[in-house]
Structures are given as structure tokens and as C-alpha cells.
Design a protein around this nucleic acid. Sequence first.
DNA 1: ACCAAGTGTGTACGCTTGTACAACCTTCGT
DNA 2: ACGAAGGTTGTACAAGCGTACACACTTGGT
Lengths: 194, 194
Amino acid sequence: MSGTRRQAPNDPGRKDRILDATLEVVARDGVHGTTHRRIAAAAEVPLGSMTYYFDGMSDLLAQAFARLADTMSLQYRRMLEDAADTAEAETAVVDLICGQAYATHRELTLIFEMYAYANHHPEVRSTMHTWLLRSRESLGLHFPEHVCRALDALVEGWPMHRSFDDAPLDRDLVAATVHAVVTGLGGAAPAGRA
Amino acid sequence: MSGTRRQAPNDPGRKDRILDATLEVVARDGVHGTTHRRIAAAAEVPLGSMTYYFDGMSDLLAQAFARLADTMSLQYRRMLEDAADTAEAETAVVDLICGQAYATHRELTLIFEMYAYANHHPEVRSTMHTWLLRSRESLGLHFPEHVCRALDALVEGWPMHRSFDDAPLDRDLVAATVHAVVTGLGGAAPAGRA
DNA sequence: ACCAAGTGTGTACGCTTGTACAACCTTCGT
DNA sequence: ACGAAGGTTGTACAAGCGTACACACTTGGT
């Protein structure tokens, strides 16, 4: 009457360690410099584990990126959940953009890699799409739909500039812009929409 | 009295054709799937030409991406030069975002690849930086500095969403957002700046 | 017509890669 | 205590890679 499972894994949690190591290598060397061997070395597991736990390189990267998307989505949502009113929500959005806690340099690098990779791998592309929807949903806790779209574009685009610009982001400018979008778009959808 | 040049190239313009082919392959297979052999096939030149014209793969990609940045910068600038007043400039920005003429799907894919690659290659990173400055300069033809920064973030971020969202971009919403940013930030810099 | 001199190329080599798999090891039910 | 079943790994291999380079070709000056 014992279950089908005869033996527990020798090293539970190893799969997760490999996924973490994958993101580490991708952040350091880019997808184009990521190999099974480097990941194995980073995770301190034998090479054979790569094919044992994952069905090839695409599968490995797909799962690693899914993990990244999940982590980021959760942070995103939490920051907006913690806001009590619209004013605090605006501040949260500014924080997301300025990246004190949200998108560190490492994470930004990973996001770039994921974007690029997603364009050539439908499975990752769909993960990306879900992430997008989740972000919008989080913003939706405080703002109307059309404002969410505009804000999310800012949250996406501005940190990217931060990544290639020497000058640090001007927090006051970001705050002013967010405020302009929120109040400027008003409560109603723009002309031409239902 | 003849110059130092003893012989003209047999096939002038081949270097450019290789660069174009490189972008073609990168757009199709991503940087991680780009090889000398595929580029050579796409450009219909022998494999030997790769090492003859370029000093390795990094050099090749760096020059190809520089070409891309140049093309895009020029389009960007032209659209803003053609605007006669601020209202037309706003429309131009909306066009840039909605991507009728500016960032096609192919170009967007290439930009993603370049972003990702730049994070691991200082030379490309600096190309990226120059591009950023040129964009801002183009916007500067019509808008004050701080507005340029906000607008450029939108031009960057929104098309990225377009790339992963099924629903087409809502032009009216984009126009309303651009207008909100331009008028909302007003003529003066936000508090806290000189 | 011919000869340098520079342009262009086919091929070969050493290396790294992804992946498979036979052998080993750990655990659990008995 | 022990066998069997499934978890785990070291190693091997074929494929594909970047790169170098000896050779062939094309051209311009005379």
C-alpha cells in the first residue's frame, strides 16, 4: 500500500540551485556566453545533473527566466499592495522606476537578456506576456486601466535609460512625470475609446 | 606620384553587405544563434571573408550594432526635424512610439539584442550611450531638457510593451500621455533642480 | 604583355559545446 | 541486513564553432 514513490531525491532543492546559478551565469556572461558547463560550475554540481534535471538548454533557460519573472512580479505587486492611497501608489511607482529596491543593475541585465531571448522562444515569450499582465494588474489596484498602461511603459523604459546613462536618475523629475501622467490622463479614458 | 593605394578593392561594398547580413541573422536567430557561417551564407560570401574584413566575432557585432544605432538615430532625428512646432513635435513622438515608420518589429528585436549584448561589451555599451544622447538631442529641438528625458523613456518603454502585447497600441492613449507629460511638466524644471 | 602587390578564398585544425548513457550510489520496504 | 528501484554522475562522442593561413585571383603601373 505504499505510494508509487520508492525513493526521495538525494539532494532536494538542487534543481532550484541550478536555476539560481543559471541566472547568475546569464547575468555575468549573457545568454550567448551561457553553457551547461559554466552553470554546473557555478552551482557546484556535476555536468551530468544538467541533463538529468532539465531537458536541454532551452528548457533550462525557460525555467530560469520563469523564475525571474515570478520574483520580479511579486516584488512589483508587493510594492503596490503596500500603498494605502493613490498618493502612496504614485510614490511606489517612482520607487519602482528609480530602482532603490526593485530593479537592481543585475536584475536589469537579466531582464534585457530575457527580452532578447523571448523574441526567439515562444515559451519564454508567453512568460513575458504573463508578466506584463501581472504588472498591469498590480498597477490596477490604484489606477484606472489606461493610466496603468502609460505608467507601466514608464516603469519599463526609464530604468533602461538608467542602465546606459552615467548621470543618476533625477527622482524629482520622475515624480513629476508620474504625477503628470496620473492627473493628466484623468479618470476617464481618452477620446476614441469605449 | 601615384598614391599609396596600389589596388582598389575587388568588391567594394562587400563589407556593408556583410554588416547587413549580420543584422539579418541576429534578427532571425538572436545573438546566441549567430555564427560566422550563417552570416556568410546570408551575405552570400565565402567564409574566409569573415576574418578578412573583421577582426573576430565581437568586432563584427560591434560594427553591425553601430550601423543599427546610426540608422535608428537618423530616423529619429528626421522625424523631429520635420516637425514645425510643438504640436507637430508631439505628433512625431506619438508616431515614434506607435511605430508606423520608426521601430518595426524587426528593428525592435534588434534593439533588444543590442541592449542585451551591450551589457557585456563596453564598446557596444558606449555606442548605446551615444545613441541615447542623440535621441535626447533630437527631442531637444522642441522640448526642454527635463521633458526630453521623460519623453524618451516613453519612446523606449512603450514599444517594448507593444512587442509583447497582443492588443495593438491605443494611439489616442499614447497621444494623451505624451500631451500630459509635455504640459504637465511645464516649462520649468521640477523642484529640487537648478 | 607582364609583374609586383594587394584582394579574396577554400580548407583544415584545435577546441568547446550539447547530449547521451552505462555504471555507481543512496535510500526504503521488508 | 539486504535487495531492488530509482536518483546521480563521469565520461565519451559527434557536431559545430572560431580562426588561421597557404594559395589563387585581380588589378594598375609600366
